[in-house]
């Protein structure tokens, strides 16, 4: 690990200003992704800004009946919150399907959204990776790509976003609230937070340098049967090969977002219109522009079957 200086920020505005005003600075929240990558020198910040004192660890009700989740609310606490369990079951389920009890106790809402890919070539510093070292190439394209993305990919990168929580938040139309280094705040719909790789896979979000996430807002509950189904190589403590977050209403309409298939949670509103026609119709539209490799083409039928299982369960 490279050496770094360390400070505890006293307010969100001060944290953002410090991040913009210090060379090569990074925020640290739970640390469960950042420290992992720092040990491997994939992340090499010269300065860490600890945001754990920022009092952003509360879940509050909003004026229009939704919930404002502080950026530092731990994954365990968010999943266990009685309002989330009751009204946003898909979110509790997605959180509980991720990582381990120990990790969820540390992992934060913002850190979870901003965790980086688990592409094995991104982790292997001996191999080319455009995300880790822009312009060096992509070892996954033409390599072993069983875990990689099937849709929204580019010639520069075929990595997936590993978060389970983000997939549920996409289905719930969450909104990310931030503060920028100049003190201004803004709201970013979750659909616009994560980017597709394009020709700059190293730029993963629409956040500006030094911009701090302060909260994630859930709109008022939409009801329906809510489910999160995650398919992985073992039954627990493993990342998704494919996952489905679904909210299905009594009349057969609903929302569907997929994990494990793209560089961001994958939701296509036009595909949801096909829900009354069944899983095959929905996934045909979701994957209309898919470009799988020979190693990961299995994800297309797997996603269809996983969605079919979720719909069966929701309608039971």
């Amino acid at each position: 690990m490279r050496s770094f200086s360390y400070e505890r920020a006293a307010s969100p505005g001060a944290a953002a200003a410090a991040a913009a005003g210090t060379a090569n600075a990074k925020f640290i929240a739970g640390g469960t992704n950042l420290l992992d990558l720092m040990k491997l020198e994939i992340e090499t910040p010269a300065h860490l800004i600890d945001v754990n004192d920022l009092a952003l660890d509360r879940i509050e009700e909003t004026a229009d009946g939704g919930l404002r989740i502080g950026a530092l609310v731990r994954n365990t606490d968010l999943a266990a919150d009685i309002r989330v369990r009751r009204d946003y079951g898909v979110l509790s389920r997605a959180l509980l399907a991720g990582a381990s009890g120990q990790l969820r106790n540390k992992a934060t809402t913002a850190g979870n959204l901003l965790q980086r890919t688990r592409c094995p070539y991104f982790y292997d510093t001996n191999l080319p990776c455009n995300k880790r070292k822009p312009g060096s190439g992509c070892a996954a394209i033409g390599g072993f790509s069983r875990q990689h993305a099937v849709v929204g990919v580019s010639d520069a990168c075929i990595a997936t976003h590993p978060s389970d929580m983000a997939v549920a938040m996409r289905a719930l139309d969450a909104v990310v609230e931030t503060v920028r280094p100049d003190g201004t705040t803004r709201s970013i719909p979750i659909a616009e937070l994560h980017r597709l790789p394009g020709d700059s896979p190293e730029i993963e979000t629409s956040l500006e340098p030094g911009e701090l996430i302060t909260a994630v807002v859930l709109p008022k509950p939409v009801g329906g049967a809510q489910a999160y189904r995650k398919v992985r190589d073992r039954a627990s403590y493993a990342f998704a090969l494919v996952s489905v977050a679904a909210i299905v209403q009594r009349d057969g309409t609903g929302r569907v977002a997929l994990g494990g298939v793209a560089h961001k949670p994958w939701r296509v509103e036009a595909a949801e219109a096909k829900l009354p026609d069944g899983a095959k119709a929905v996934t045909a539209r979701l994957f209309a522009d898919a470009k799988p490799t020979k190693d990961n083409a299995y994800k297309l039928p797997l996603a269809e079957r996983t969605l079919a299982a979720v719909l069966r369960e929701a309608r039971a």
């Binding site: 640290i28 600890d50 990582a99 381990s100 009890g101 120990q102 106790n105 540390k106």
Partner: peptide, 27 residues
Amino acid sequence: CDHGQCGACTVIVDGRRINSCLTLAVM
């Protein structure tokens, strides 16, 4: 493993279990 993948380093901090390998002492 030193990377949050095995649980051998589990300790209890303020009543909650965590992986002590993925947190800084100064925190």
